[in-house]
């Protein structure tokens, strides 16, 4: 129950429609602007550093003495970066498609289907989150090597290299992280059951309800999953390094590692130039994705 008559603090603001200038608004803007600056500064510094010379880069400073655009072109000419970009794109798209397919279905089943031991299953997926990737690296590597019938392996997984050095190995093991199943589940669970029941009355099957009724309603969550998964795949370093030996499949971050390959001789201007270029697509992606959050809002007009 919310009682309306109480003269609560700030009640004057609450009922009136937003007017042009209010102290609260100004404070909000000030806080957001300071926050945004704190967030952007490292990125700005990275971009500025990309223009610096070797000598300038050694000292901590902001501005380069001149805009050395050649740092960008030279960095990109150091290695086949076009191929690295393409590989990263391929991995990111593949992994995201796989994650969406596996995690939304599982998340929905956990949230809305009357499965025996549903609570246990949810706990299972939460427990999976506890596993640190770094330590299962070695066993995971061995599993990927023993995938039956791939890469020269027999049906028992012996004799060949399995998914090592393959797109399968790059995409499948790290896709569909339990994190995203859990995230999808938490959004599906917020949807009211009445919607599904109304659809059932209209004669829609269970899969139809999942696909045509419920999933469109969690569009903000789907976009969130896409953004996170694409970013994780795009920035992946250790796993691609471990399971690829040939350069033809290696992604962007491994290409950028060329510049810091020798820790004593890091080529900072190139590293920063390459990193800035690599980050750009992710920022553009986000700029578009965040607009969709608002779109999602229009769709969810559900009665509680």
């Amino acid at each position: 129950m919310t009682s309306a008559t109480l003269p609560a603090v700030g009640a004057g603001q609450s009922s009136s429609k937003p007017s042009a200038i209010r102290p609260g608004r100004i404070l909000l803007y000030v806080v957001l602007i300071i926050g945004a600056l704190l967030m952007i500064t490292p990125f700005l510094w990275m971009v500025l550093t990309a223009f610096k010379s070797d000598l300038e880069i050694m000292k901590f400073s902001w501005l380069p003495s001149e805009l050395r655009w050649r740092n960008f072109t030279e960095a990109m000419q150091t290695a086949p970066f076009l191929r690295y970009f393409r590989n990263s794109l391929f991995i990111a798209v593949g992994e995201t498609a796989f994650t969406l397919a596996v995690c939304t279905t599982a998340g929905y089943a956990l949230a809305k289907m009357p499965l025996r031991g549903g609570k246990m299953l949810l706990n299972y997926f939460i427990l999976l989150l506890l596993v640190p990737f770094q330590i299962i690296l070695v066993p995971l590597f061995m599993i990927v090597k023993s995938i039956p019938l791939f890469g020269g392996n027999n049906i028992l997984g012996h004799g060949g290299i399995g998914w090592l050095n393959s797109w399968w190995g790059l995409i499948i093991p790290l896709g569909a992280a339990p994190l995203f199943t859990f995230l999808a589940r938490q959004f599906y669970v917020s949807l009211p059951d009445e919607l599904a029941q109304a659809a059932r009355v209209d004669g829609l099957g269970e899969f139809g309800i999942f696909w045509r009724i419920m999933t469109p309603l969690i569009k903000p969550a789907l976009i969130t999953i896409c953004v996170f998964q694409i970013e994780a795949a795009w920035n992946g370093f250790l796993w691609p390094l471990m399971i690829t030996t040939s350069d033809t499949m290696r992604p962007l971050q491994l290409g950028l590692a060329i510049f810091s390959q020798n820790p004593a001789e890091i080529q900072w201007p190139y590293l920063m130039a390459g990193t800035a270029l690599a980050t750009l697509p992710m920022i553009v992606l986000f700029v578009f994705a965040q607009k969709r959050f608002v779109e999602g809002m229009a769709n969810v007009g559900i009665k509680g």
Binding site: I147, P148, L149, F150, G151, G152, N153, G159, G160, I161, L164, N165, S166, W168
Partner: peptide
């Protein structure tokens, strides 16, 4: 699927 794909792979030890 895996039979189809494995025919493309190589790298037997």
């Amino acid at each position: 699927l895996s039979v189809v794909v494995s025919s493309c792979g190589n790298g037997v030890i």
